[in-house]
Design a binder for these strands. Structure first.
Length: 618
RNA sequence: GCCACGGUAGCUCAGCAGGUAGAGCGCGUGCUUGGUAAGCACGAGGUCGCGGGUUCAAAUCCCGCCCGUGGCUCCA
């Protein structure tokens, strides 16, 4: 329940119009002089208990301002989580009744649009607001702390200087400025749909699914392929880095004592699922499963650092409705989540540093260069003061200025984290890779290791998402392609992620057989090639291939067959005005693509290799 | 929750001082057998988000609801 108390000379109100929740009311309005006016929002979870506490608050304030008249004024706009009308009216009546013992109480009607005039006395106690907490289930403690946490902002320069963010010269770092503006001012002056939303639909990657909850997407064959390749890639990198891949449940008992406490410390809203006897929440990361597994394992110092990895399909976060956008922010998303158990802070720092570099490398190989993102480090002041050299060594890795957010007090479970933030075409920022040093959860989950001295100790834990959410990586790649198009290039995805890598276009029907043969050879060599066998003009086929962002378009006609070559349009080297066409043999083409996609996972074509056999998905 | 905008053919959208529903793309059929970013012709395809009201008559006006997108959620 939220209440706003105003000590007034008078209040005057007039009922205008009913809403559908309107309470029976015959009068027109009222004027009450010298009253303590209490605006009230009854919220979800409020009970008579909550109302009684509110009554006590009101009594207290009324005593202080020496007022014997109270006006209870239902006012929905104090809260974004209102109770249903029935409960609200019930509790308001209840409060009216309780207050009537000591005060002259006037209650204005619920559920009407009302015009009102109020004259507030303006002395120090004349304006007060109070929040009376009921059974609050949706908002966790961490979310509230996040609101309260006081942040200090700095830029750590490549010269290892910590500059107040106000004093930093951003003129050479426009993207960092955008990121900082977004972070600190949280300002969004944009009122257009982000470019990647249009692209994800047009390229048949993903789309909204109206039959599901907001923030849950459908992925078409192209989208599934792209996601799948990214998932495979990040997973391989983490395993290569030394992690053990595991799989854990997606839902957990809400009442589980350990999990309950962790929920309180994580700033996210959960989906709740009703089970037979217990209620469950859907996981928002792989922490629970991995921590519970680790707690049971017998671990000694010889095993450390110990890494465990899971690709979470899905993680669920019930973000506020208005925060959801395209692939940027979802309620169900796929996240690579790796946890590293380390012996002490020194080992934690070492791993943190290595995983920072791992993240840089993963993003780079995916197609996102350090220029495409901005680095943020969030840290407690103590930890910074004690580890300056270490933080500076991180700054050296990319040799670019870093945004530092510093807190006096540790509000969260970590003492240090970094994020790589992508700044999109509309100047909005969102985090990709991140690593955190967690100093709390080993103890909470009862995770221990036996040290060389024979004693059981609690380790520290690193949380790492080397690429960030897979959907968000797709978002970043699409936005990046859009940005490159604005600079005159032809937008495209990296070749290893392009659903079709080579499109074969036969000039006439008599070339079709040869075209199919070539496509088959390519596919046998793990290159995704398809054939435009539709009855369309060559120009039309080239246009369609181009608007699908296909990296290599190979035309085959009499001349090519005679010479034993292909005429290939190379997208990367073309512009809308001038297309780069090269004659090359099939072997040359295969070599070039092999080269381009080396070390990357492969999956076959997501749809039939003959275009005439392929449905349009939307 | 609040504000703005939107929901019409598979897609993108026009029509809305009330009078039998339109375009482009896509799809189907036919002609054309093509040389690098949209060949030509014909055709099929619509409970105009849902419910109520006004009217001789509603996609169009009024009321309510649902869904979507963007922003806000007041930080004095």
């Amino acid at each position: 329940m939220k209440i706003l108390l105003l000590h007034s000379d008078y209040i005057e109100y007039e009922v205008k119009k009913k809403t559908r929740f309107a309470e029976q009311f015959e009068g027109k309005g009222a004027r009450i002089d010298e009253a303590l006016v209490v605006f009230v929002s009854v919220e979800k979870g409020d009970t008579e208990e909550t109302a009684l506490r509110a009554v006590e608050e009101i009594r207290d304030v009324a005593g202080k301002v020496n007022s014997d008249k109270i006006v209870l004024y239902p006012y929905a706009h104090l809260s974004s989580s209102l109770a249903d009308a029935e409960t609200a009216v019930k509790l308001l009546r209840f409060m009216e009744e309780k207050l009537s013992d000591d005060f002259e109480v006037h209650r204005s009607p619920f559920g009407w649009y009302k015009a009102f005039k109020i004259s507030c006395k303006g002395h120090p106690l004349s304006e007060l607001s109070r929040e009376i907490r009921g059974e609050e289930i949706e908002l966790t403690q961490a979310l509230k702390d996040e609101e309260k946490a006081k942040s200090y902002w700095y830029i750590l320069t490549p010269d290892k200087e910590l500059v107040d963010v106000e004093k930093f010269d951003f003129s050479n770092y426009p993207n960092l400025r955008k990121f900082v503006d977004y972070e600190i001012a949280k300002r969004r002056a944009v009122d257009q749909t982000p470019p990647h939303v249009e692209l994800m639909k047009r390229l048949e990657i993903a789309d909204y699914e109206e039959a599901s909850d907001s923030g849950h997407m459908r992925y078409y064959p192209n989208g599934r392929l792209i996601k799948s390749l990214l998932e495979m890639f990040v997973t391989e990198k983490c395993i290569e880095y030394g992690a053990m891949e595991v799989e854990t449940p997606i839902m957990y008992d809400r009442a589980h004592p350990t999990l309950r406490k962790y929920l309180e410390r994580f700033p996210a809203r959960q989906y709740i699922i009703k089970g037979d006897k217990r209620d469950f929440f859907l996981r928002f990361a792989a922490c629970f499963g991995q921590f519970l597994m680790t707690a049971q394992a017998t671990i000694t110092y010889r095993h450390l650092p110990l890494k465990m990895y899971e690709l979470t399909r899905y993680s669920f976060r019930k973000e506020q409705r208005g925060e959801l956008v395209g692939l940027r922010r979802l309620r169900a998303f796929t996240m690579p989540d790796m946890h590293t158990i380390v012996r002490d802070i020194e080992e934690a720092k070492e791993e943190f540093y290595n995983q920072y570099k791992l993240s840089v490398e993963v993003l780079k190989e995916i197609g996102l260069e350090p220029d495409d993102y901005e680095v943020a480090i969030r840290i407690t002041r103590d930890f910074y003061e004690e580890n300056k050299d270490f933080i500076h060594s991180i700054a050296e890795v990319l040799n670019k200025p870093i945004l530092i957010e510093m807190w006096d007090k540790r509000f969260f479970y970590f003492v240090l984290k970094f994020e790589f933030n992508f700044v999109d075409a509309l100047d909005k920022a969102s985090a990709l890779s991140t690593v955190q040093i967690d100093v709390e959860n080993a103890e909470r989950y009862g995770i221990t290791y036996v040290d060389s001295d024979g004693n059981e100790k609690h380790p520290m834990i690193l949380h790492c998402s080397a690429s960030g959410a897979i959907e968000r990586v797709v978002y970043a790649l699409l936005e990046k392609a859009h940005l490159s198009a604005e600079n005159g290039a032809l937008p495209m995805l990296p070749v290893w992620l392009s659903p079709t890598q080579v499109r074969i276009i036969p000039i006439a029907e008599r070339h079709l057989e040869k075209a199919i043969e070539i496509a088959q050879t390519l596919n046998e060599n793990r290159i995704r090639a398809d054939v435009d066998d539709r009855e369309e003009t060559t120009a039309k086929k080239v246009r369609d291939a181009s608007t699908s962002w296909i990296p290599y378009i190979a035309v085959i006609g009499d001349r090519e067959i005679e010479e034993g070559v292909l005429t290939v349009t190379v997208r990367k080297e073309s512009t809308l005005k001038g297309q780069k066409r090269v004659k090359m043999t099939l072997e040359d083409l295969m070599d070039e693509i092999k080269n381009e996609t080396e070390g990357k996972p492969y999956k076959p074509l997501p749809m039939h290799f003959m275009l005439s056999r392929r449905p349009s998905m939307r």
